[in-house]
Simulated assay, not measured.
Amino acid sequence: MDIHAYVPGKAKAEGVADPVKLSANENILGCSEQAREAYAGAAGQLHMYPDSRTSLLRAAVAERFRLEPERLIFGQGSDEVFQLLNQAFLEPGDNIVQGEYGFAAYAIGAYACQAQVRRAKEPNYTIDVDEILKCVDERTRIVFIANPANPTGTWVPFAEIERLHRALPASVVLVLDGAYSEFCNDPAFDDGMDLARTAQNVVVTRTFSKLHGLAALRVGWGYAPAEIAAAVDRIRLPFNISIPGQLAAVAALADEDFQRRSVEHVDRWRPWLAQQLGGLGLEVVLPSAANFLLVGFPKTPGRTAVEAEAFLAGKGLLVRGVGNYGLPHHVRITIGLEEHNRAVTEALAEFLKA
Score class of each variant (00 low, 15 high):
Asp2Tyr: 12
Val7Thr: 13
Pro8Thr: 07
Lys12Thr: 15
Ala13Asp: 10
Gly15Thr: 10
Val16Tyr: 05
Asp18Gln: 09
Leu22Ser: 06
Leu22Arg: 08
Ala24Gln: 11
Ile28Gln: 07
Leu29Cys: 03
Cys31Gly: 06
Gln34Arg: 14
Gln34Lys: 14
Gln34Leu: 15
Tyr39Gly: 07
Tyr39Arg: 13
Leu46Lys: 08
Thr54His: 10
Ser55Asp: 14
Leu56Glu: 15
Glu63Phe: 02
Arg64Ser: 11
Arg66Met: 11
Leu67Trp: 09
Glu68Gly: 08
Glu70Gly: 11
Arg71Ile: 04
Leu72Gly: 03
Leu72Glu: 05
Leu72Thr: 03
Phe82Trp: 15
Asn86Tyr: 01
Leu90Met: 09
Glu100Cys: 13
Tyr101Phe: 12
Tyr101Met: 05
Gly102Tyr: 01
Ala105Cys: 02
Tyr106Asp: 05
Ala110Asn: 03
Ala112Leu: 12
Arg118Asn: 07
Ala120His: 07
Pro123Tyr: 08
Asn124Phe: 12
Tyr125Lys: 05
Tyr125Val: 00
Asp128Ala: 14
Asp130Gln: 13
Asp130Ser: 12
Glu131Tyr: 01
Ile132Pro: 00
Ile132Gln: 02
Pro151Gly: 03
Thr152His: 06
Thr154Gly: 06
Val156Lys: 11
Arg163Ile: 05
Arg166His: 14
Leu174Ala: 02
Asp177Tyr: 05
Gly178Cys: 15
Ala179Pro: 02
Ser181Gln: 12
Glu182Thr: 10
Phe183Pro: 07
Asn185Lys: 15
Asn185Glu: 13
Asp186Met: 01
Met193Asp: 06
Ala199Lys: 04
Val202Trp: 05
Ser209Asn: 09
Leu217Ile: 04
Trp221Cys: 02
Tyr223Thr: 00
Ala229Arg: 06
Val232His: 05
Asp233Ser: 12
Leu237Asn: 13
Asn240Asp: 12
Asn240Met: 09
Ser242Gln: 11
Ile243Ser: 01
Ala251Lys: 01
Asp255Asn: 12
Asp255Ala: 12
Glu256Ile: 09
Glu256Phe: 00
Glu256Thr: 14
Asp257Pro: 05
Ser262Pro: 00
Val266Ile: 13
Arg270Ala: 01
Pro271Asn: 07
Ala274Thr: 08
Leu280Lys: 01
Leu282Cys: 09
Leu282Asp: 09
Leu282Gly: 06
Val284Thr: 03
Pro287Ala: 03
Ser288Thr: 07
Phe292Gly: 03
Leu293Arg: 04
Leu293Pro: 01
Val295Cys: 09
Gly296Phe: 00
Gly302Met: 04
Arg303Glu: 13
Ala305Arg: 01
Glu307Cys: 00
Ala308Gly: 08
Glu309Tyr: 01
Ala310Glu: 12
Ala313Pro: 02
Leu317Val: 04
Val319Phe: 08
Arg320Met: 08
Gly321Val: 02
Gly321Trp: 04
Asn324Glu: 14
His340Phe: 04
His340Gly: 10
Asn341Val: 07
Arg342Ser: 14
Val344Trp: 04
Thr345Phe: 15
Leu348Met: 07
Ala354Phe: 06
